[in-house]
């Protein structure tokens, strides 16, 4: 299952990464080599095996529903590249997404 240049471009865009044409070529080669290697897992007989989805088989711990103080607005915005009236700032969103 070889990865194509279009796949690389599309996948990079999905991950919000821009690749130069040279990088695209390099990634194409390297990723194909890596994917070629990982194809090995096809050799394993995985019929009837449940996927291991987590680091260990325990069950999740829960917390009680208590509201505690977090960060102040000032602390929350400290380090933000741009703020305005207590908000983080991004270029204008043309349309709502979700």
């Amino acid at each position: 299952m070889a990865i194509t240049r279009d796949d690389v471009r599309h996948t990079a865009a999905l991950a919000r990464l821009a690749l130069s044409p040279e990088e695209e070529s390099a990634f194409l080669l390297e990723l194909n080599k890596i994917l070629g290697y990982v194809e090995k897992i096809r050799e394993l007989d995985l019929a009837g095996i449940e996927p291991m989805t987590h680091g260990h088989a325990g069950t999740g711990s829960l917390r009680d529903d208590a509201a505690l103080d977090g960060l102040s607005q000032e602390e929350a915005l400290r380090g933000a590249p741009e703020t305005d009236e207590g908000h983080f700032v991004v270029p204008q969103v043309v349309r709502p997404e979700e």
Partner: peptide, 19 residues
């Protein structure tokens, strides 16, 4: 690039900021 760390300001839309 929205809340902390490096940020490519001056993009036209959020996707541009992220990329």
């Amino acid at each position: 690039g929205v809340r902390y760390g490096a940020s490519a300001r001056g993009a036209e839309d959020p996707a541009g900021l992220y990329t």
